[in-house]
């Protein structure tokens, strides 16, 4: 399979005067053409830092990419100079942010905003770019005539469509979407997810979707990786992870969801809180919250290992070295 993005052993720290914050601690990810990878985790897991690294946009200082390689469409992102990065951002890779209200320029028409990157990256004349901008609007389900309107004249869902049109205008190879539908209402979220799924398929792109919602992952992703405290604890196809999950943290996330439960039953939240990334516990970072943890878990950081020899499904959990170990969920046959 042709890889659009290949991240190997990425380590990113934020070094401030008070602390050395270990935001990303050695993650490896790959996304192939027409595939969508969901990166799941809670606030502070390092999802957004990972995404920013791909565009080499980690704020420096305090952010430092300490180790690893990022290959985007065959090019080494971390070796690029500023000029090459400028050419790459918005052209080969585009990003959609959570909040469409603040991602748009309030004093430019949406047509101009879509045309801007086309003029810059594809050397189009302003007239050509505006024509293409109208085409893009049509593609995301907005009437061409609205190209002359300003962002405040659009609703939240429409603004996010405009942001998608801007991101896709230059036909990027990779689209990074950071919580693209979190700020939208549920019926509008459904519309936008549907649109994104179609566009990825029809335009031969790849997508990295960052979200905390397992429902959204089930809806649009092919593969997924679960992040905890800057590490990937489990990855695989969505079928692997949803129907055959192996990591205790993944199990905890699913147990916390209200919609699977019958009414009246108590939810089973994960006890405690995510550890402070400036002061990670030794060994497995999830061990202090893990219902299955033993002393062996604090001895060393577990490596991602294949689940039963699977080529797609990997889990980083020391407990599987114990004979007969299984998650409660898998034992009960739920």
């Amino acid at each position: 399979m042709e890889l659009v993005l290949d991240i190997k052993d990425l380590v990113v720290h934020y070094e401030t005067e008070d602390a050395d914050v270990a935001a990303v601690n050695g993650i490896s990810l790959a996304i192939g053409k027409k595939r969508t990878l969901g990166l799941v985790g809670e606030t502070g897991a390092g999802k957004t830092t990972t995404a920013l690294s791909i565009m080499n946009l980690v704020p420096d200082p305090p952010g430092v990419i300490k180790n690893g390689s990022i290959t985007l469409a065959g090019n080494d992102v971390l070796a690029m100079n500023d000029e090459q990065l400028e050419a790459m951002r918005g052209n080969d890779v585009a990003m959609i942010f959570q909040d469409p209200m603040t991602a748009l320029n309030p004093v430019m028409t949406v047509g101009e905003q879509i045309a801007e990157s086309l003029e810059l990256h594809q050397n189009m004349t302003p007239e050509e770019a505006l024509e293409k901008a109208k085409e893009m609007l049509k593609l995301v389900g907005i009437a061409e005539t609205r190209a002359y309107d300003y962002p405040h004249q659009f609703s939240g869902g429409m603004k996010q469509r405009v942001v998608i049109a801007i991101a896709l205008a230059c036909s990027p190879k990779l689209l990074i979407a950071d919580e693209p539908t979190t700020a939208l209402d549920v019926t509008i979220q459904a519309q936008v997810l549907e649109l994104m799924k179609d566009l990825i398929n029809n335009r031969d792109m790849a997508m990295l979707l960052i979200t905390h919602s397992l429902g959204v992952v089930a809806e649009v992703c092919d593969d997924m990786a679960v992040m905890y405290a800057g590490r990937i604890v489990e990855k695989g196809t969505v079928d692997d992870v949803f129907n055959n999950m192996r990591h205790p943290y993944t199990e905890g996330l699913f147990n916390s969801l209200p919609n699977l439960k019958e009414q009246g039953e108590m939810l089973e939240p994960i006890k405690g809180l995510m550890p402070d990334p400036a002061d990670l516990p030794p060994g497995c970072a999830f061990a202090p919250r893990c219902p299955y943890a033993t002393e062996a878990c604090t001895a060393a950081v577990p490596e991602l290992e294949s689940v039963d020899g699977s080529a797609t499904h990997f889990v980083a959990c020391q407990a599987y070295s114990r004979p007969g170990f299984a998650l409660r969920r898998n034992k009960d046959g739920k």
Binding site: T187, Q191, S213, N243, N259
Partner: peptide
Amino acid sequence: KALLSAIPLPIVGKDKPKRQVIKGEI
């Protein structure tokens, strides 16, 4: 009905119900 159908369910595989997306906005 539309509101219920629009919830992204954390289910993958054959048990996943078909989604119905409503048009337009409030």
